[in-house]
Design a protein around this nucleic acid. Sequence first.
DNA 1: GTTAGCACTCGACGGGAGAGAGTGCTAATC
DNA 2: GATTAGCACTCTCTCCCGTCGAGTGCTAAC
Lengths: 344, 344
Amino acid sequence: MKHTLDERKQTILLAITRDYISTADPVGSRTIARRYELGISPATIRNEMADLEEMGYLEQPHTSAGRIPSQKGYRFYVDRLMEHERLAEGEQTAIREALEVKAREIEQVIHQAVRIISDLTSCAAVVLLPEISRGRIHTLRLLPVEPGRALLVMISSSGMITNRILPIPSQVSENDLQWISGYLTERLKGLTLLDLDEHLITAILEELRGYSAFSRQLLEALVRSVQQADGGKVITGGATNILSQPEFRDIEKARDVISIFERSHDLSQLLFASRPLGVKITIGNENVLAELRACSLVSAVYFVGGLPSGALGVVGPTRMNYARVISIVEYVARMINDCFDDPF
Amino acid sequence: MKHTLDERKQTILLAITRDYISTADPVGSRTIARRYELGISPATIRNEMADLEEMGYLEQPHTSAGRIPSQKGYRFYVDRLMEHERLAEGEQTAIREALEVKAREIEQVIHQAVRIISDLTSCAAVVLLPEISRGRIHTLRLLPVEPGRALLVMISSSGMITNRILPIPSQVSENDLQWISGYLTERLKGLTLLDLDEHLITAILEELRGYSAFSRQLLEALVRSVQQADGGKVITGGATNILSQPEFRDIEKARDVISIFERSHDLSQLLFASRPLGVKITIGNENVLAELRACSLVSAVYFVGGLPSGALGVVGPTRMNYARVISIVEYVARMINDCFDDPF
DNA sequence: GTTAGCACTCGACGGGAGAGAGTGCTAATC
DNA sequence: GATTAGCACTCTCTCCCGTCGAGTGCTAAC
């Protein structure tokens, strides 16, 4: 048995994959012969299809049905056969307009991105916001709220802003707060929350001896925000689109997929695994999550201030229009990068 | 035809409703006679059922099926027949524990509330966060971020915190920012963003003549945040629970309902209509949204700092366990009220 | 007013027939 | 040796039909 696909086999695999992607019906030899001018008869195509099936590129739902691409088939299609698509001019401008929010703050832009992605792809869209804990600290500020309470405002270099209310000793004055804010900003600027280990904390406490009780509390609150859900927040949209796909007509399968969108922790893990460069495509079982074995994920990392900060992705059936989805994900990622070259 | 229901009719309606709620099967006269000791024969029950159907309290899916409550039937059940349920001690503590987050900030508590509500009810949960624009202004603060950019932090009396980055003229110094922050906080404290009309703005601009270009920009940014999505943000969870209900085995119906959860604007409208006191129950067609005609909504308003600030609700099939859902919604609302008696 | 009895209706289930799509194999052809 | 026509075969899908069971409505008796 040959292990490489000769040109004709590739052509046939391409034809089958294309056809199946657009019709969702298993495709037979006659259909291929009629629809694509390959100059060979259905019988020949059948022989080739049998070979392709034996090699693992095609599957047959049942004996007298046509063939559908297997996971390996999709992989080969995506890696070798698919022609990369250039997004239509109109869609490019649609994306640009969607992302142009008046206040160009990252959270709002991300929300718009989710919407436009899910609309254009007819799949579900997922975007991972910049993680607070991985962004570099840009500004820390403590504001008085009530006696005994202060608001900690943290701005990260990726443009994310966190708020947290913490208890403070009541003798701390507004001036103290301001002084400490300035000090901490100066001291921690450029570091990430992950850098705030026990070692650094004790060093700072040493330096801040005059404020020790308070500053320990404060630093601990900072560290807590590392662990808390605020980092890696996930925005999703268009989950309903998936319910329209014929492969999810079965409610059990639909529920599996939809439930993923409610477990934002798992989702963020998934997106986080995206490679820093280009678009990553995860097909069917390649997904770690069992619930996504009938789906593919197309994801890309976006950059804020030149640093990889978050990721965006599209979740759809393995039968998705990869060429189109990829070009959309790519374009949106690029627009976000451009938009947040400088986050402020 | 009588227009009131005698006691026996009520008993039968109650029995049918209860049975249908727990089994999801249309219930017949024999079942009622067997399962509830009414001392009357199936035939008599049939007669009564025929009457109830004629009066509009019951429906028949098809000729030889049992009866199910109509919308009017559910309404009567909820208003007159249903016994109010006291939440089990264990569930009460489960709720209290879920809501006890370390940092008791409103957004986090709300997230927990959504989770616990959807878990306990097996329905979808929806919570409306306090609207920025309706909360009273507690603190306004401008922080320098970059040359030409400031971060506006607004704390409302309901504990909600908004951040917005705005461009500022580069000659404005940190001291200026601080002075204006203090001035505006003093001037606007206790007002809502809705009070910030053209009239008030010009008055303030007059007072702030020295800073006029800047302060106009600033005030406009404030007003913009009234219109922007930040107010009335909706948190949802447990939409998958709905997919497990037999009435949504049909994917079309499921999609309708799920799609509601992606249109947060409509959802917030819906919740906003809740009455300020007690629990509101909206059954089937009583819902404004066509997609919810197969669902009921149980909602309640919660208070922060003594003011009605947001609302929480449960969306489920009309066949939901009203008594249970109501007691859960009621209890969670009460816990939130207690928790945010003073938001800070 | 209540109930027993009974004919009737309707959906669910299962088997069987027929259509349609597609295959794999064989033998003929290029 | 590769390609193709022909053909028998397989499998699903759909429709039809008969049966079963649940439940009803009506009537007549209690």
